[in-house]
Design a binder for these strands. Sequence first.
DNA 1: GAAGATTGTTGTTGACGACAACAATTGGCT
DNA 2: AGCCAATTGTTGTCGTCAACAACAATCTTC
Lengths: 164, 164
Amino acid sequence: MTTTAAPTSLRRRAGNGTTRRNEADEIGLDALVGHAGYAVRRFQIWIFQDFIKTLGEVDIRPTQYSVLTVIGANPGLSQMAVAKRLGIERARLVHLLDSLEGRKLVKRIKSKSDRRSHALHLTAQGETALAKFKRLAAEHERHVEEKIGKANRERLLQILAGFT
Amino acid sequence: MTTTAAPTSLRRRAGNGTTRRNEADEIGLDALVGHAGYAVRRFQIWIFQDFIKTLGEVDIRPTQYSVLTVIGANPGLSQMAVAKRLGIERARLVHLLDSLEGRKLVKRIKSKSDRRSHALHLTAQGETALAKFKRLAAEHERHVEEKIGKANRERLLQILAGFT
DNA sequence: GAAGATTGTTGTTGACGACAACAATTGGCT
DNA sequence: AGCCAATTGTTGTCGTCAACAACAATCTTC
């Protein structure tokens, strides 16, 4: 073994010519910092990841949760109505419902008044499951509070209330 | 505040399958209204669509804009550094740069100090183009102001500053 | 010099938004 | 009554995006 004499371990790369930043982020964002969209995008990624993780044990993603919630609060809605209300493509909702119906959380009932459409309902199993999902979602919401502060979360909801 | 853990919103319209709402959206969202993630998701969709539309004439999407901005403000960065700073997968950045380089806005220069990495720079054409993009992006930002209000936009940026 | 880490790259998977097309059905209009 | 337009659910395609996995070339470290 060579008796190494190099004790330093300074973490600089130095020497070279190419902008080798110390390490971390002294990298400027320039115009980006003034853009709401950028901040919102980063925040949304964070919030979704936390949601997915917090509801991981029940394997429910944000979109699934929103569908279940709306159906639970408005039994009998058509797929069209749910899609429109949530801003989801009705084509996409088909797959979402296929999945949820496969898990026995939701059932499609043929409407008698309009034989084209389906009336959406939670199954009994779906009701109790949704109750649990809501508890976990509330836990996720507390994570958000911890992250940005209780007052800020309230303010955020208020500012964006128009988009719900 | 998410009151108690018993969000019993009784509006059971059950019975048959046909709960034919008048027309529009008197459809309740129930628990969803208390979730920051839902509002943020809807807002983000809106804001991205406006960005894409406003920068449509130059065919620049939000992610491309963020990449150009960061490279413009920090010439010589490696792909790894840019990816890390923007929270993009480095695999994804490859395609983004392929596109931007194909449009002669960015160039990858082989680093001499580390022959694995590329130093990223804007081309002359990229510089002038970015200036235009920034003007259009500012216009988009004004749309955001019109939508949620000037003060609210500021507050939003402040609340989410930690995620940039 | 060998072992391990990093960088750029390619490829795959899955969620998601946007569209287009289609059959079945309903509603409007004459 | 009959016909045409619109609606509903469905299937399919395309492009964006995040998350991984694997790989060759190259650095770092011992």
